[in-house]
């Protein structure tokens, strides 16, 4: 376990007109750690994720990433080339809507292979083998390797998106409601898959979810957001079993047997 955070956010603020989406948010994420960011719709949790990933620029505050070599870099000051390079090598992003995270016009194999090719892989056979291995790992039959995601169910698309993201073994993955919009049984399978992969690969994950059960299953730590602020944070089971803030108590009590 490293003593330095892989990602640190300090004093992040961002307003959309009169709406304060983020209001002085600070947090740290350590290597190999899963941090869940929970809260209701409009609490600012998805905005926070996008700002951490460099996809949205804050009005104030800074996000610092520490790379493989231990060098610190300011996410909003590194420039687009460096940010894009990170996004396709050391980082990943799993989106709620698989259609945003996948290339719908490209086969499953091409979707998984893209990051490999973007980082220099030029051997068709190896790319295909690696893609087939990852399809299997996310429980998609390798016989579907040449099928396009349009022919897949919602759960399969999401698993494909995870394979596409993890194939280059990123160190840090942002997940925005990865189980949103899926049937409950499909969610459980996906969560379990994410849990296994994340712990096997030792990936740091910033997970935005409104699903308390998902947070409990996956996260080492939990951050509760409301109206653009962090109202409570700590060890996942302690925040959920011994919530202090009125809003967290409300959130926990609204969930059936999390």
């Amino acid at each position: 376990m490293s003593d330095d955070p892989i990602l640190s956010a300090r004093g992040l603020s961002l307003s959309f007109g009169a709406v304060r989406a983020l209001d002085g948010v600070s947090l740290d994420l350590w290597p190999g750690e899963v941090l869940a960011i929970v809260g209701e719709s409009g609490s600012g949790k998805s905005t926070l994720l996008r700002v951490m990933a460099g996809e949205a620029r804050p009005d104030a505050g800074a996000v610092t990433y520490r790379d493989t070599l231990g060098a610190s870099m300011e996410v909003h000051g590194m420039g687009e080339p460096a940010l894009r390079r990170l996004a396709r090598t050391e980082w990943g992003f799993v989106r709620q809507d698989a259609r945003e995270g996948l290339r719908m016009g490209v086969s499953a194999g091409g979707n998984v292979g893209e990051r490999l090719m973007a980082t220099g892989a030029r051997h068709y056979g190896s790319i295909r083998e690696e893609a087939a291995r990852w399809l299997e790992r996310v429980e998609i039959s390798p016989s579907r390797i040449d099928d396009r995601p349009g022919t897949f169910s919602g759960g399969m698309r999401q698993r494909l998106q995870i394979a596409r993201t993890l194939v280059t073994r990123p160190r840090l993955v942002f997940m925005d409601e990865p189980t949103g919009g899926l049937d409950v049984s499909v969610q459980a399978r996906l969560l379990d898959l994410i849990r296994g992969l994340v712990s096997d690969l030792g990936i740091a994950v910033a997970l935005v979810t409104h699903d308390i059960a998902a947070a409990r299953l996956l996260a080492h730590r939990l951050v509760v957001m409301r109206e653009g602020r962090i109202v409570e944070e700590g060890l996942t089971d302690r925040v959920l079993d011994d919530p202090r803030h009125p809003y967290t108590q409300l959130l926990v009590s609204s969930v059936l047997a999390a």
Partner: peptide, 16 residues
């Protein structure tokens, strides 16, 4: 950005 992975994906699809 010399970000040409996409073109390679197209060639991959051709071969597949």
């Amino acid at each position: 950005l010399a970000d040409y992975g996409l073109m390679q994906v197209k060639l991959y699809e051709d071969i597949a």
